[in-house]
Write a protein that binds this DNA or RNA. Structure first.
Lengths: 145, 145
DNA sequence: ATTCTTGCAAAAGATTTGCAAACAA
DNA sequence: TTGTTTGCAAATCTTTTGCAAGAAT
């Protein structure tokens, strides 16, 4: 049952990648599966360390290359933060995030309703709006002890 | 009149810096004045290039050090973006920004009313909210030709 | 067989740091 | 005078790139 589901997921992944001429490799699958299984949005370094036990010869450069490949295939999205390393999210639909100011971890912010409010916020004249970014900053449960 | 105002501004700056044991130097003043006079929020590099004609021997490291000093004195705030260099803002009150996806420039987003809506957005359990970050992303007038 | 991918090391861009000389108070 | 700051160069951190060897289809 669980095994069958995994096989189906892998097939779906193969197809998404194939459309962009991207191959399915063990390194790629490992990155994808790790991202699918964590509740927060890890950095490239975290992914690297998590995947290394299974694939001891993998390099950090490969992690970065694979993340870019997965982004190209619209399977993963990249969240950027100036202070620190970028983070990677298995979701690609439009949504917002919560970020911990202590540990830097990032989570999805679910159930944001009424964001129609956002659309009525007006930028300067001549500015063409393409997207909104909303983040709640604070301290996560773990960091508060 | 304008000269008198500038002297008063400089005195106010001196006092703000003095409270933190920070001295008033020509380099510091140049960074502060450049930041006060631009409508967008420049990077350290932009400030460096803008200030260099007046102070040809200034170095980029000094710009960074001075920006940190001004931030410590709560006279400047830092806006961070993962893709690119950080940007510096002469405003230190809580407000939001517009950012151009083409050129990377950042402006203040004025008159954000109704942000009470933000306060009702609920993060995950156990998360202590400290701040909100809202950005409108798009293309600025100049980049649209 | 051909194209794509890996792993390594080196490069790149932004920012920080160590230190001796110069400056502000 | 005393502590702070400057300018330079070197170091740091994250991310990207070049390339020869290896893997996927």
């Amino acid at each position: 049952m669980a095994a069958k589901k995994k096989i189906n997921e892998r097939e779906a992944l193969r197809q998404a990648l194939h459309q962009q001429g991207v191959q399915l490799t063990s390194q790629r699958v490992a990155v994808f599966e790790y991202l699918s299984g964590v509740e927060h949005h890890p950095t490239a370094e975290e992914i690297y360390l998590a995947v290394k036990p299974k694939l001891p010869r993998i390099s950090l450069a490969t992690i970065y290359k694979n993340l870019e490949a997965l982004i190209k295939c619209e399977v993963v999205s990249k969240l950027t933060y100036g202070d620190a390393a970028a983070r990677y999210d298995i979701r690609t639909d439009h949504h917002y995030h919560t970020r911990c100011l202590s540990c830097g971890k990032v989570w999805d912010l679910n159930a944001v309703e009424g964001s129609a409010w956002l659309k009525q916020v007006k930028p300067q004249a001549g500015f063409e709006v393409k997207d909104y970014r909303l983040e709640i900053l604070g301290h996560c449960r773990d960091c508060r002890r």
